[in-house]
């Protein structure tokens, strides 16, 4: 079963790679061509980015939905630091984004909410530089302000009187939830497996469910609409956020510069303020 899945997944990836080879007008072997084209590692990239003032044009950043608030801010700051640039974002589930990048979606930078989804892109040969982790995130129990059900532990979520929303196992927040619940040896039967963390959060905000397992940053980003309850097992399911410029970037200089910007110290401070932990 796992074997077939892997096989079919590779099959899909190869087919997608073939498709890319067709669409991209670059001649031979995109992987080798790209690695030589962008000879700079992200660290070197940051140095050259600040040195060369020639960064201009459009940068398209595909970023995990949980990065929306911080990255929107980053976009504004980047545009201010490099006049003449415009940063366009596509926020979504990391897997969806990875799938669309692998199938040839026009993207310059990919910031994922899991190393696994980034690996799909790396495997397809779409990363122009090795991915670098720029933040970490962990889960919290999101409840409405006032915590009407009095939820203080993960164990309480297994009660049948508590309606719980979890992310689907195929999306990073769901995978993290599975890991955390396993670590805590708690079995939770949710009423729904949500397609992404935002939908799970919305279900809490609208009081359709009593609790959801979401990222700390989502709780922080909700601006008081939900409050978070910490639980020890969350530390067993920490997610890393990698970022990488992409092979098919139409604007590879700006892509490298934006990647370097996200990895810079001021950006890290902003990430910390949004509830992310240092990588």
């Amino acid at each position: 079963m796992a074997n077939t899945r892997l096989r079919t997944a590779t099959l899909g990836a190869t087919a997608a790679a073939a498709l890319l080879a067709l669409t991209a007008c670059s001649s031979s072997g995109n992987t080798t061509a790209s690695s030589s084209a962008t000879a700079s590692t992200p660290a070197a990239g940051s140095a050259s980015a600040s040195a060369s003032p020639a960064i201009t044009g459009k940068v398209i950043v595909f970023a995990a939905a949980s990065l929306k608030n911080t990255f929107t801010q980053f976009g504004k700051e980047f545009e201010a630091a490099h006049p003449g640039t415009t940063v366009t974002f596509n926020f979504g589930g990391s897997d969806t984004l990875a799938a669309s990048i692998v199938s040839g979606a026009p993207a310059d930078v990919f910031a994922s909410a899991s190393t696994a989804t980034m690996a799909t892109v790396t495997k397809a040969g779409d990363n122009a530089a090795a991915p670098v982790n720029f933040a970490k995130n962990s889960l919290e129990i999101a409840v409405v302000p006032g915590n009407p059900k009095g939820i203080t532990t993960l164990q309480q979520l297994s009660s049948s009187s508590v309606k719980v929303a979890l992310c689907a196992k195929t999306v990073p927040c769901g995978a993290a939830a599975v890991k955390a619940l396993a670590a805590a040896k708690v079995t939770v039967t949710p009423v729904t497996y949500e397609q992404d963390v935002t939908s799970a959060l919305t279900k809490v905000e609208l009081k359709e469910v009593d609790a959801a397992l979401v990222y700390r940053t989502d709780v922080q980003g909700s601006k008081g609409k939900v409050v978070g309850v910490d639980f020890p097992a969350a530390q067993q399911a920490v997610t890393s956020y990698p970022i990488a410029p992409l092979t098919h970037a139409t604007n590879s200089a700006a892509a490298a510069a934006f990647t370097a910007f996200v990895l810079s110290a001021p950006a890290e401070q902003e990430l910390a303020a949004a509830g992310f932990q240092a990588p």
């Binding site: 799938a99 689907a168 195929t170």
Partner: peptide, 12 residues
Amino acid sequence: YLALQDDPATAI
């Protein structure tokens, strides 16, 4: 849709 997230072949 959910299969598409991690396994496009199954989704197809």
